[in-house]
Design a protein around this nucleic acid. Sequence first.
DNA 1: AGATGAGTTCGATATTGCCGAACGCCCACG
DNA 2: CGTGGGCGTTCGGCAATATCGAACTCATCT
Lengths: 249, 249
Amino acid sequence: MGETIQSVERAAAILRLLASGPRLLGVAELARAMGLPKGTLHGILRTLVHVGFVEQDQATGKYRLGATLLHLGSTYLDVNELRTRSINWADALAGRSRESAWIGTLHEGNVLVIHHVFRPDDSMQTLQVGTYLPAHASALGKVLLAHDPYGEPVAPPLEPHTEHTTVEPEALEAELGEVRARGWASEMEELVEGEVAVAAPIKDRRGVVVGAIGIRGAVERLAPDRVLNMEYVSYVRDAARAITRDLAR
Amino acid sequence: MGETIQSVERAAAILRLLASGPRLLGVAELARAMGLPKGTLHGILRTLVHVGFVEQDQATGKYRLGATLLHLGSTYLDVNELRTRSINWADALAGRSRESAWIGTLHEGNVLVIHHVFRPDDSMQTLQVGTYLPAHASALGKVLLAHDPYGEPVAPPLEPHTEHTTVEPEALEAELGEVRARGWASEMEELVEGEVAVAAPIKDRRGVVVGAIGIRGAVERLAPDRVLNMEYVSYVRDAARAITRDLAR
DNA sequence: AGATGAGTTCGATATTGCCGAACGCCCACG
DNA sequence: CGTGGGCGTTCGGCAATATCGAACTCATCT
């Protein structure tokens, strides 16, 4: 494989481990997980603390992610062209559909939420930008998987989130074919009981799918009697086409 | 100074530079900025790309921050105790005051926004979590500076943002004294024309100020005739005290 | 065409960071 | 009240490791 700097790669692995759960991790714990001597890890951790990427708990001596990462991450959003171009369209979509609007990209097998607009007139929602959605159980994810140029196989096993989650790879593959053919995807209570989502692909200049936009809301509103109201589908596809047009010029 | 791993520190410096502006940076540009050979930087960049912290623009070959950082940053929010404990109170504060609510911490001389609740009934606002506010020109910042245990001096020069921004260090210091004495801070059009903000300190178990909570809104509502409506101050102080109480147990 | 600047490759060099054992501390257990 | 095992941390010798600078290719601009 490629020539790559050992200590930097190890530092990144540490950050990944710290990010994998809300729990604080200690030197010994990390050393065991990575199969390295404690001393080695301590040196890298000391450096990461020094640059602010990691913080050390005063009481226990254990480590957690640092605030600098939050700031770096938010800066990423400014750079991301897809996001800056689509913010206004997402607002419009949320307004027309009166549901929360979402924009995501495929990232390491998951859907990374790049933008999120709350449902109008509904406070008390937590923001989801930067979080992962499971690709196989979300409308955004199905769109992205269906048009993935690299054809990354969805990492089995497919975790069930509700009783409606698609867990058989063949069933998912068949559904992705449909999505490809008709140009949009939906998801009915496959991620959260009582919630339905619709999504459509966003393409760049060259026609490559670079993201997806969609809405998510209560099954009673979007799909009365579990039959999807096609009006919402047209809202979503309109928004996706508008952004695609925007990216082309 | 401490023993610190060179390549990791350099990698962090690269990420900082990439985050310092929305512009994409090239190898040569970074090498010049850091005073290092191009080859050295290329090696680190290759590694950062490999771990997903940095992405390379296909067309120009220049570099920008990667999506992994967005995810790591959002994970930081889950770990942050101050944030998880105060989300509900921020919602309540936004509801009572009918203004946007903000929670921040001091980070590298700036106010890092840790949580942000939109003003009720007002869509079309962009989320500010992860962004910096200038410490000397925001109510949150004044609270944090006034109670900063390390007494980090505010890095002069104090950038003016409007004609009302406090730019003389002595004037700011005097104001911080007041803030310390009365237990809250305000800011009238010092950051954005027409906007006013109020904030109060949040303390941890030991009584150390670990953050601040406040609101921000139009001068017409919060301070008619440029006289602050004290009702808002009590809302903010109530919220701050509630969170402080929460953190104590 | 030529010249400039970009990103990238490569191999010799010695600097750099890795390792593992030892240290001090704290807590739980006997 | 001692003792053992866990923790985070320190240290110094060794050699693997990352650094450096020159050379390369490719665009672009003059």
